[in-house]
């Protein structure tokens, strides 16, 4: 009985090669971003070498927002009866989990940047506070996904939670503008869509954005596959338990 799930794990958990290629390109791009950011691009006139964090912090934050956007989109597709499928529920869950990881990285990289800039690891800046709340909001979403409800009921409730949570995402972004804070204005685009970064710095930042996005795609694909396998194992164990009970009842009532 126990061999069935293990054999499934051994044969089906390998992530397909296109995603491996995407992941590899993403990691290479990230390595290139680090090299360009540390050794090729110049220091900033005002921030000095601290500016080099700009090649990592905004791309990580972008992926967090992208992940939560995909979670909301997939959740909407699950809730819409015409497109209802556990595929969308799993995509929402996978993307949400990756989003939580990247939100955590956004907070960590922001704190590392904030310490020399503001003199403190943490300040009650609205953007920092809102990002921390967003992190907790999606941790709650992930916990909701682990509850012992029927898979379809759990998927519906998780989808509703994801859609409500995504309402918070634009508030996080625009809170910089709403609550005028310590936080510097958006580096890449301001509300008039005018870029504030040029030349090799802009290209390095662009490479950072593309690499992080590819890494997100790869991580989400890996997590999606693990969710599929988790569901399969559950169903295999259930079938095995049912077979065992049937066999027991046959022995008891020949």
């Amino acid at each position: 009985m126990t061999n069935q799930p293990n054999s499934l794990l051994l044969t089906k958990t390998n992530i397909s090669s296109p995603y491996k290629v995407v992941g590899l390109i993403g990691v290479c791009g990230l390595a290139g971003t680090v090299w360009l950011g540390l050794f090729v691009t110049p220091p900033d006139q005002f921030m000095g070498n601290l500016v080099r964090l700009v090649y990592l912090h905004p791309p990580v934050a972008w992926v967090a927002f992208l992940a939560f956007g995909i979670t909301a989109l997939a959740s909407s597709l699950y809730l819409w009866k015409r497109t209802r499928s556990l595929v969308w529920d799993r995509l929402a869950g996978a993307s949400g989990e990756v989003g939580v990881v990247f939100t955590g990285l956004t907070l960590a990289s922001g704190m590392i940047w904030g310490r020399p800039t503001w003199g403190v690891w943490w300040t009650w800046d609205p953007l920092l506070t809102s990002t921390a709340l967003l992190f907790l909001l999606y941790v709650g979403y992930l916990v909701l996904r682990t509850t012992s409800l029927d898979p379809n009921v759990r998927a519906k409730r998780s989808a509703v939670a994801a859609i409500i949570a995504v309402i918070d995402v634009p508030i996080v972004h625009f809170s910089v503008l709403w609550w005028r804070s310590l936080h510097q204005p958006p580096t890449v685009l301001d509300p008039t869509l005018t870029p504030h970064i040029h030349g090799e710095m802009a290209w390095t930042l662009l490479l950072g954005f593309v690499s992080m996005t590819l890494i997100y795609v790869w991580m989400t694909a890996v997590k999606y596959r693990s969710l599929v396998m988790g569901d399969r194992i559950e169903s295999v164990w259930l079938d095995a338990a049912l077979s065992e009970r049937r066999a027991e009842s046959l022995v008891g009532n020949p």
Binding site: L133, L134, L136, L137, V139, G140, Y141, V143, L144, T147, A161, I164, A165, D168
Partner: peptide
């Protein structure tokens, strides 16, 4: 789970 879901959303 309720406080974890509820507190951040009403912040």
């Amino acid at each position: 789970i309720l406080p974890l879901l509820y507190f951040p959303v009403v912040s």
